[in-house]
Amino acid sequence: MKAIGFKTSLPITEKESFIEFETPKPIPGARDLLVKISAVSVNPVDFKIRQNSAKDTVLETPKIIGWDAVGIVEAIGEKVSLFNIGDEVFYAGDITRQGSNAEYQIIDERIVGRKPKSLSIEEAVVMPLTGVTAWEILFDRIRINPEKDKGKSILIIGGAGGVGSIAIQLAKKIAGLTVIATASRPETIAWCKEQGADFVVNHKDLIASVHEAGFQYVDFILDFVDTNSYWDIMVELIKPQGHIASITGSNDPVALNKLKNKSVSFSWELMYTRSMFETEDMQEQHNILNKIADLLDNGTIKSTLNETLTGLTADNFKKAHKLLESGKTIGKIAIKY
């Protein structure tokens, strides 16, 4: 099968930052699906792994990355019970296994959902990773209860990005929260409002901007940009007994003691945790993806697709990664095979 990968971590402008190559079609294990891929999407995790996983080394076999895919089930393992051959599926992948930037991929059925019927493959493929991440951070990490928490305020730092775009929609449409999103350019401000944000504030002077919007404190904060850079700002803006959650990780220690006087909770979210550790509730990602598919099909939420490239080529992945690395992308980019 054809695949796109890399043997060493190079700047995206280098010719061999991505290469096209042939590799055997994978064979599904007991709970695996073999999926013939129709489209993929790119996420910041893609370029971060490309930049860091093969530094100062040359891999013997090219590494295939990619963690969003739509495709058709071509074969199933002996213990598969959730899907049949011919089913159209979408999923966000497993960081410990071969990625989706190829013609075929094997994937554990417990982290796969049915593709939304009403969406094109490119509209659907941009939703799994960001959708699962946003769902988990809101409802599994912060444990927002739509009945109890309806009307409370949430600040989403990085509102126009992939995760921010769907988090705005879920926070507004499912949780019933008052949504404050950060953006600074006219096009990103418009995008956040289009997703359903009640207020759009400027991240360049965030505390003053939130206060000007009429909030001294907010009940919840989601960080989709940089935990360390925004830490003191989040500490200032979070309501006593509130909850902060982040997906960005931290190169430096996080000063959790600054949350003590307000009795504030803090959570990390990593979408890969369930598959990485094969947790007891690993199949919950299958359930989340099906919920997201239902919400897309009934029009409660909408796809965050903003750009589509066509063709399984190294050039298309270079182009997509270059756009992501600029930090100025709005919504999501799909690559349709």
Rank of each mutant, 00 (worst) to 15 (best):
T329F: 00
H243I: 08
D140H: 15
T329E: 01
M1Y: 13
I221Y: 01
R114F: 14
D87Y: 11
D46I: 01
S229V: 02
N287L: 05
L295D: 00
K204Q: 14
V80Y: 08
E123A: 05
T313M: 12
G164M: 09
T248L: 01
N228W: 07
E22G: 11
E187D: 15
F83G: 13
E109F: 08
N316H: 11
L206V: 03
L312C: 07
G249I: 12
V45K: 01
V225D: 02
K173Y: 11
K2S: 11
F220H: 02
F199D: 11
M271K: 06
M276S: 13
G242M: 08
I4W: 05
S38R: 04
A75S: 15
I64P: 06
I288Q: 02
K328F: 06
A167H: 03
N43P: 02
G327N: 04
S265N: 05
T8Y: 09
I85L: 10
E187V: 14
A54Y: 09
Q98M: 13
E236T: 12
D219L: 01
P253W: 00
A197W: 02
L256E: 03
P24C: 10
K262Y: 01
L82S: 11
N43A: 07
N257A: 06
I27H: 11
D87I: 07
A208M: 12
D252L: 11
R143V: 12
V254A: 02
E109S: 09
M127P: 03
P62N: 11
G99N: 09
D315P: 02
G176L: 06
L305S: 05
K79Q: 15
L206K: 04
P24H: 09
L177V: 05
F18Y: 15
K79C: 11
I19K: 13
W268N: 09
E16K: 14
L222W: 01
L155G: 04
V125G: 03
P44G: 00
T133F: 00
P28I: 12
